[in-house]
Amino acid sequence: MDFRKLDNVSVNCIIFGLGSDGLYVLLQKRTLNMFRDDFPIIDDWIITGERAFISKTLEESANTIFKSITNLSEFNRIQFRTYGNSSSLKTDKDLLWVKSHGLKVQSMTIAYYFVQPKKSATLTTDQFKWFSIKSLPDLGFDHYDIINDAHEDVKKKIMVEPVIFDFLPYKFTLNELQIAFEAVLNIELDNRNFRKKALKKIYIVPLNETKKGNAKKPSKLYAFSRDVYDKVTEKESMINF
């Protein structure tokens, strides 16, 4: 394999995770201290990214980044936008970071996002940390805008594609499905109306299993059937709220 990388093309991976208390994004710590008064100290967070490999496709490069961070081998990857790096250099810190890493100022970034249950990812290093989408730290470059763009794309896609099920374990309750929609869309849904409409979706398949919890009555478990979904000739909105 050719391990050389393109010097003007990078791949950024926005990693979303659904927790019990909302939607999270995984960020990488960015630190640099040149120990000179005329250079700023860098201590903030960024979206994880790497220059694209010459011998790999962009998708393969994104997969490599994601797997190296989370240890996950099964996932859904969505490319949503391309950015020009020259417009992302917001501060002197950004410019210093780029130059110190031997990167070109004039380059482009292809952005992907991945979604999964937050607890399913086993982080391989303490350089990464989950942050609530509602409470992001100081970010380098234009990464706040990129995260916002990715979030907006997720919100659109979960209404017309089965992306929401990637946020959930294979077996889930209808309450967990509702919480997933509410967390990603940042809205509140009527429980009775949601359950009624969800049960009409033939690709949300009831299982002969229940999940025990704090409630007196165990909750029935369901699974998403990709085979059934693919056979539906007229695709409707995932949930008509």
Rank of each mutant, 00 (worst) to 15 (best):
E234S: 02
I47F: 00
N71Q: 06
F35H: 12
N214H: 06
D227C: 00
V228L: 09
Y170E: 13
P40Y: 01
A62L: 09
S88Y: 09
I204V: 12
T57N: 07
A215R: 15
L95G: 00
K171H: 14
N8G: 02
T122V: 15
S107A: 14
Y24G: 07
R192A: 07
D190W: 04
A198P: 01
L139C: 07
Q28Y: 08
I47P: 01
F16S: 04
T82V: 12
H143D: 15
K171T: 14
N33Q: 04
Y229H: 01
S100L: 05
S107E: 05
I78N: 02
D145Q: 11
N193S: 13
D92T: 15
F39I: 04
K129W: 04
Y83V: 10
K56M: 13
G140Q: 12
Y203N: 03
N175T: 13
Y113I: 09
T109H: 06
S87C: 10
F181R: 06
N85S: 13
E59A: 06
Q28T: 14
F141I: 08
V105N: 10
Q127S: 12
D92A: 15
K104T: 09
M34H: 03
H101R: 15
L103F: 11
T173D: 02
N175Y: 04
F167Y: 10
D145C: 00
D43H: 11
M238N: 03
Y144W: 07
V105G: 09
L189K: 10
N175I: 09
L189R: 05
A215F: 14
A111V: 09
F16Q: 05
I164T: 06
T124H: 05
F141Q: 04
K197M: 04
D94E: 07
N71F: 00
D166F: 07
A52L: 11
F75I: 03
T91H: 08
V163S: 01
F35Q: 09
K157E: 08
I46F: 00
K201A: 07
F128G: 04
T48D: 01
F53R: 13
E161W: 06
S61G: 08
L177S: 05
I15L: 05
A223D: 00
L177P: 06
K5T: 12
M34E: 03
G140D: 00
H143G: 03
Q106F: 14
N85Y: 08
K200Y: 00
T48M: 03
I15H: 04
R81N: 09
C13N: 11
V11L: 08
F39P: 01
L58W: 03
K212S: 14
G102Q: 05
Q106T: 14
A180T: 08
T31G: 04
L168V: 08
L189N: 01
T125N: 15
K29D: 07
Q178L: 13
V9W: 00
Q116F: 11
E152Q: 15
K217T: 15
L174A: 03
S10R: 13
E60C: 04
K197A: 06
L96D: 01
L123V: 12
S73H: 05
I78F: 03
K67H: 00
N71V: 00
G84H: 10
L96P: 02
S237D: 00
R192K: 14
I110T: 12
D230K: 07
